[in-house]
């Protein structure tokens, strides 16, 4: 189990982390979500000792993380980085050896991961000769080569096409199913709802919501009310509701959690012809906006 607690870091006047804490458990995938500059990368770097924290603790299975523990961690940094002129296979195997694997184990595992990620046949190509998407895969192979117990992925989905997102999700789920602890960050809150079981939402260095996805959405103070009118020009002003979108007759409101959906439906039907109606927990991005008031 990875436990980050009370993380604080300041760069001059800029506050990167302001008491944030995150917990990630074995076999589960944590989505570490928040807008750009919220402190996600700084928090993830702290797991690898790449940042000097002003305060806070980073613990793995109840013990302060040290160099030996980090050998069982896999990391995909936000700023992707591999030696551009080194061959893909040699590089991935070398990183495996750097984390304590024997030469033969590293070679075998490299081959297996390159094949699983669709890079078989590219092993002898230089990294710089690969396309952007393939470099991303090589990067993932580099963080997975030693079958780490903890996988820390910083914005793994950025720059990927939908097929790339699916492939990445599959690998992440696979590692979690094998018992690894996985935490990944994303600034696209809704994109990852289906991938993780747990979320921690961070803003300006503080955690604003955390827990299982269902808990976080379910305990949010609002509900999402979706009403479609056949005629977009219908006038309807539901009580205690905040309109967040209105397009081609589809209106989305945020309403209090304890509001009565039936009352809204009745009101809407009285105002015009309703072709669609939904009353559900808010999306993560809506939970975030509500929580930070933006």
């Amino acid at each position: 189990m990875l436990e980050l607690a009370g993380l604080a870091k300041r760069y001059g006047e800029v506050v990167a982390l302001d008491g944030a804490g995150v917990v990630a458990r074995p076999g589960r995938i944590v989505g570490f979500l928040g807008p750009n500059g919220a402190g996600k990368t700084t928090a993830m770097r702290s797991v690898f000792g790449l940042v000097a924290l002003d305060a806070g603790t980073v613990a793995w299975n109840g013990r302060q993380v040290d160099a030996a523990a980090r050998l069982r961690f896999g990391y995909m940094p936000e700023q992707r980085g591999l030696y551009p002129k080194m061959r893909v296979g040699a590089q991935v195997a070398w990183l495996g050896r750097l984390r304590g694997m024997s030469r033969t184990d590293a070679a075998r595992s490299t081959e297996a991961w390159l094949e699983r990620l669709g890079l078989d046949g590219r092993s002898n190509d230089r990294v710089e000769a690969l396309s952007h998407g393939n470099q991303q895969r090589a990067q993932l192979a580099a963080s997975l080569v030693h079958d780490p117990d903890l996988l820390v992925l910083d914005e793994p989905f950025s720059g990927l096409d939908p097929m790339g997102v699916d492939a990445m999700s599959e690998v992440i789920r696979g590692r979690a199913a094998e018992g690894a602890t996985v935490i990944f960050s994303s600034h696209q809150l809704d994109l990852v709802q289906d991938i993780c079981q747990d979320v921690a939402i961070i803003d300006r260095g503080r955690i604003v919501a955390a827990g299982t996805i269902d808990d976080v959405r379910g305990t949010a103070p609002s509900r999402r009310l979706e009403v479609s009118f056949t005629d977009p020009s219908v006038r309807w002003d539901p009580p205690n509701a905040r309109l967040i979108r209105d397009r081609n007759g589809l209106r989305i409101y945020m309403v209090p959690r304890d509001a009565d959906p039936a009352a809204y439906l009745t009101g809407a039907m009285a105002a015009g012809v309703v072709s669609g109606f939904a009353f559900e927990a808010p999306r993560l991005s809506e939970v975030f906006r509500e929580a930070v008031g933006r």
Binding site: R45, F48, L50, A67, R70, L71, F73, Y75, P77, Q79, R80, G81, L82, Y83, P84, L95, L98, R99, A142, S143
Partner: peptide, 17 residues
């Protein structure tokens, strides 16, 4: 400079000193 500018240093230093 190459290690720093390509950020490969983060990957390497995450598993060594």
């Amino acid at each position: 400079v190459e290690e720093k500018s390509t950020h490969v240093v983060e990957q390497v230093v995450s598993s060594t000193s």
